[in-house]
Amino acid sequence: MHRKKIIIVILAFIALCCVFEFNHLLTLENAKIYQAQLSEYINNNFLLASVLFFVLYTVSTALSIPGSIILTLLGAALFGFWWSLLLVSFASSIGATIAFLFSRYLLRDWVQRRFSGKLQAINLGIKKDGTLYLLTLRLIPIFPFFIINLLMGLTPMSAKKYYLFSQLGMLPTTIVFLNTGTQLADINSLSGLLSPSVLMSLVVLGLLPLISKFIINGIKQNKVYQG
């Protein structure tokens, strides 16, 4: 137990250093500057730049460092829609799963004390709907993503299922923001992301798990009726 506490302190220190060192850099204004400065470098070192971006995104997600939206926009502006979709989709899912594992094996006691009320709601949702509940949380973010990562680590869900359904659930929203990020130079504020078309896309995406659940329930009832 003593060793576990030492590891937690070290990880917390690293996270704090990353937050205070990089958080102020992840702004919309800086993202535009980075885009202009890095474009030529990426053209000459595409593979290396892709790996570095992938690692940065994974680490920032695993440590819950604010600025994922900015990184997503920047990735689309630097690498184009399809390549950034590959990078961001896998990096965000892997980072979320790492945070999930941190919670399960290193931060369990702290998470239980800090988020006990929300944990009850998560457990009830998982008990009732299983992995469909995780899919719903990813498409309709009732809780911030970093809280979902921490709380899900204390549920019986396996890491494999968590990764797969996180990747599936976060993919539609990732697509929406990456599509917006391809026009980073024209965005003057984060409020500009919330245009009517983007908001409508998010609403439609949010309804997907509810529609899926309705269809699944209909199929189950039909089988019971026929049986």
Rank of each mutant, 00 (worst) to 15 (best):
W83P: 00
W83I: 06
S84M: 04
L85M: 09
L86V: 12
V88R: 03
V88A: 08
S89G: 08
A91S: 14
S93Y: 02
I94M: 13
G95E: 02
A96N: 08
T97I: 10
A99I: 01
A99F: 00
A99D: 04
A99P: 11
F100K: 00
F102L: 11
F102M: 05
S103E: 06
Y105T: 01
L106H: 06
L107Q: 06
R108S: 14
D109V: 05
D109K: 13
D109Y: 09
D109T: 09
W110G: 03
W110T: 14
Q112H: 12
Q112S: 14
S116R: 11
G117A: 12
G117C: 09
K118L: 13
Q120F: 13
A121Y: 10
A121P: 07
I122G: 07
L124P: 00
G125I: 04
K127T: 12
D129T: 07
D129W: 15
T131R: 10
L132C: 08
L132F: 14
Y133H: 10
Y133R: 07
L134K: 03
L134W: 07
T136S: 13
L137G: 04
L137E: 02
R138N: 14
I142S: 10
F143S: 01
P144D: 08
F145S: 12
F146L: 00
L151Q: 02
G153V: 02
G153H: 07
L154T: 00
T155D: 08
S158V: 02
A159L: 04
K160P: 01
K161G: 13
Y162T: 00
Y162A: 07
Y162R: 01
Y162P: 08
Y162N: 12
Y163H: 13
Y163E: 02
L164K: 05
L164R: 09
F165P: 01
S166V: 06
S166R: 08
Q167M: 15
Q167K: 12
Q167R: 11
L168A: 15
L168I: 12
G169M: 00
M170G: 13
M170A: 13
M170Q: 12
M170L: 12
T173G: 15
T174Q: 08
I175T: 04
V176Q: 07
V176K: 03
N179Y: 15
N179S: 15
N179R: 15
N179C: 12
T180W: 01
T180G: 06
T180E: 10
G181P: 11
G181W: 02
G181N: 05
G181H: 05
T182F: 02
Q183F: 14
L184F: 11
A185H: 13
A185W: 08
A185Y: 14
N188I: 04
N188G: 14
L190I: 12
L190V: 13
G192V: 02
L193C: 05
S195W: 04
P196N: 06
V198M: 04
V198Y: 04
L199K: 07
M200A: 15
S201W: 08
L202N: 08
L202M: 11
V203A: 15
V204Y: 06
G206D: 00
L207N: 03
L207Y: 14
L207C: 14
